[in-house]
């Protein structure tokens, strides 16, 4: 028997496959047994309801998906009343993604409110959504990253994961700040700021002009960042960016990811995560590795 168990902060996951924020909803239960997953991360919740950005919000690019949803969500109160109760019935560890548009204090309030709910396993701090009107993202500033994580850290005892932006000159600097502020883990990477153009009407394909790029198009960049950060920090990394099959997930693990996030792929093949879990297991058996943790960061360089 091989062990797929990994630890992210206080969380013990039965396998390293996590459904990433913005691509998980309870409706996926019609396609797969959610209880077989390592963990799930909700769509980002903000304190107040957010209408989101005007359409068009998505477009396909070469091996990728460009999106500008704009954190559409019903806000904390409605989330707690209408969505959380059924999420709590899941036996899979539940990670709530939290974010804010302009008020850093809101993150602390969100963390405090969620601290009281026993079934919530962890928080993912979305300080890297590229589709907000802020000129600079929290995770594009290492001092601000430190300050925000530190404050939220004081508000929660739950596993705290910081999701970082790849749109920076040196990802390791930001990752180090997050570790120093006592984040339990890092999610790497959020989408890459990008755009697409329609030459027929000479308009951008997204209403917000720019958006976040995800999918296989960004995988090499994500791998590079996971590898760089793995050299610099000791906290676990959840690697993500264009994972479409088990092979991709294993690449992230070799580069230093303790767990992997499946995002865009869920939108195309809603049952794919289970295939990936199986594929990772098969790889361990074939490679005669008994514990997946032995594989983490084992890239031969």
């Amino acid at each position: 028997m091989v062990s797929l168990r990994v630890k992210i902060g206080k969380l013990n996951l039965k396998n390293p496959v996590i459904l990433s924020s913005g691509t998980f909803s309870q409706d996926l239960k019609y396609f797969l047994d959610l209880e077989k997953l390592g963990a799930v991360v909700t769509k980002t919740i903000t304190l107040r309801p957010q209408a989101g950005n005007p359409p068009p919000r998505t477009c396909e690019t070469a091996s990728g998906l460009l999106n500008s949803i704009g954190l559409e969500n019903p806000g904390l109160d409605v989330f707690l009343k209408k969505e959380l109760p059924s999420l709590l019935k899941l036996k899979t560890p539940l990670i709530i993604s939290i974010g804010t548009f302009d008020n850093l204090k809101e993150l602390v309030i969100l963390a405090k409110e969620l601290e009281r709910i026993k079934g919530v396993s962890g928080l993912e701090l979305n300080i890297s959504c590229p589709n907000m009107k802020r000129k600079k993202l929290i995770s594009q500033d290492s001092h601000l990253t430190y300050k925000v994580i530190k404050e939220v850290r004081q508000a929660t005892t739950k596993t705290l994961i910081a999701k970082l932006s790849p749109n920076v000159t040196d990802i390791t600097e930001i990752a180090s700040s997050a570790q120093k502020a006592e984040a339990d883990a890092l999610s790497l990477i959020n989408t890459i700021l990008a755009m697409a153009v329609n030459i027929d009407n000479r308009k951008p394909k997204l209403a917000t002009i720019t958006g976040g790029l995800s999918g296989p198009a960004i995988k090499p960049i994500a791998l590079r960042m996971v590898w760089q950060v793995y050299q610099k920090v000791n906290i676990p990394i959840i690697g993500m960016g264009g994972i479409m099959e088990a092979k991709d997930a294993i690449e992230f693990i070799l580069c230093g990811a303790t767990a992997v996030g499946i995002g865009t792929a869920n939108l195309i093949y809603p049952d794919l995560s289970l295939e990936i879990i199986k594929g990772i297991k098969d790889y361990l058996i074939k490679s005669r590795i008994k514990d997946i943790n032995k594989l983490v960061g084992s890239l031969k360089v």
Binding site: P55, T58, L65, E72, I268
Partner: peptide, 22 residues
């Protein structure tokens, strides 16, 4: 008719503006 990413209500990509919001 709209461009869609997931088509199953997950991604919130294909919205239309209505009297009750997107």
């Amino acid at each position: 008719e709209e461009h869609m990413a997931c088509g199953i209500g997950v991604c919130l990509g294909c919205v239309v503006n209505t009297k009750r919001g997107y």
